[in-house]
Nucleic acid binder design. Structure first.
Lengths: 241, 241
DNA sequence: CGAGCCGTTGAGGGGATTCAAGCTCAGTGG
DNA sequence: CCACTGAGCTTGAATCCCCTCAACGGCTCG
């Protein structure tokens, strides 16, 4: 990291109600009045790729809504190896540990430029008491995180290497905006996410490039041909069965 | 399945307050009065190994507290392969999807003889309105499930086969009572859980038996030497680093 | 322009899979 | 009583997928 890129800004009055992800985010459950009450405590943060949002084991003092970008969750094994267990994208809630007063379970790191809103614990506690609809929204998000973690296990950590890479491409595509080029992780990161060697990831991505499934454009960016991607996956699934 | 073994029984008056897992279960948050109100709707269920508790995609009408036994969560891939994504043991809450009105995300199957309490959705909704402490307890359990799923990814689906088997043994040991023989999954189930061939699982378990780490006793049961288990894991971790 | 990082590709080796054959053991029926 | 059967466990041998080691080219950046 050459320079400190985290930017911090208070959220100006009325900003939450105009938020670009509000419809899909935690605060979608709140009415204008509640929104106004908690907003002063909410601040906006920005992280550059590779920056840590919070650390494993740290006391959790806030939850965050992801407004833009992709966040990865990392653990470190007893042997000292990094393991990525999940991704979170736009609209996701991260750091829910703070709601139940538990230390953060893993490290959250920005994969792409990330913008998020930090909601401090007192505000969450306040809303929990006075806004039952927010509680329901909180639980929905917990369930989403759980299903994402389980999908990660079954899609990205099982099966032959080629299928795992294809599944990863499908996932980053979902996290990106339609039409826009999506985030294509560096090969070494792919390796950590999928539990394979950097070279294996590179070989497979190269093959997929030749097949026209991915078309890298710029740094860590690529266009993905959704049709070819589906086709490649279907073919694998068919011959496996 | 030779016979239908599911047993159903209403929970008699006052039973919940005497429940053997209550201190660690969802209802630990409730006082005697609330307990009395919801108890009539709670029923006790029993499942034999291999029986399905609920199915993937089914409309969720109840949550369950595991009073005894081990439950596994299965998904099926597009290629038709089974994938196990998590275990739940005594004291765990399963089927939380019902709290947020979502269909069950995966299939829940009994690994060992399982006894659980079924709490129907209306009761949960009632308590949610009137017992804030239960809401907090619900969220704590969601976080536990999330961390269990993430641990599954990093411990049981990554790294060399031998380490994954050792980690699985450590996990089933946690789920069992101290001193008692623990559940030792059939080799084929181990393969599905750990993403390896049945024969590989068998070879590794055989080796661990020769090393004295596991001592099978009876059908799907074994004693585990905690010290040797730790030692074997530490040795792997040390030479990996 | 050299240093360093990243991506790519090749060659070789190793861990896990696949194929296959025995083995034990419980249940079944002659 | 015991062969018969089938399912699960174990072990061997051959194969293959993926890892490791290594070299090289492109790129950015000091």
């Amino acid at each position: 990291m050459l320079m400190k890129v985290t930017r911090i800004a208070p959220v100006e009055l009325g900003a939450c109600s105009r938020c670009e992800v509000r419809a899909h985010a935690l605060f979608s459950a709140l009415d204008a009045r509640s929104l106004e009450r908690v907003q002063p405590a909410v601040i906006s943060l920005a992280f550059a790729p590779g920056e840590t949002i919070y650390r494993h084991g740290a006391e959790s003092a806030a939850v965050f809504t992801v407004r833009e970008g992709i966040v990865r969750f990392e653990k470190v094994t007893e042997a000292g190896e990094r393991r990525i267990v999940r991704l979170a994208g736009r609209g996701a809630l991260i750091g829910q540990e703070a709601v139940v007063h538990r230390p953060y379970a893993e490290e959250a790191v920005a994969c792409t430029p990330v913008r998020l809103c930090r909601i401090p614990h007192p505000s969450i506690a306040d809303l929990q008491r006075n806004e039952p609809s927010l509680v329901r929204e909180l639980m929905r998000r917990w369930q989403c995180a759980l299903e994402a973690a389980e999908d990660w296990t079954s899609d990205l950590k099982s099966g032959p290497a080629r299928r795992r890479v294809l599944k990863l491409l499908a996932l980053v595509r979902e996290h990106g905006a339609a039409g826009e080029p999506v985030w294509l992780p560096p090969r070494h990161e792919m390796g950590v996410m999928l539990g394979m060697a950097t070279e294996t990831a590179s070989r497979i991505v190269s093959a997929l490039r030749r097949e026209g499934v991915v078309a890298p454009c710029g740094i860590e960016r690529a266009h993905i041909d959704a049709g070819l991607l589906r086709g490649a996956l279907d073919r694998l699934d068919r011959e496996a069965a």
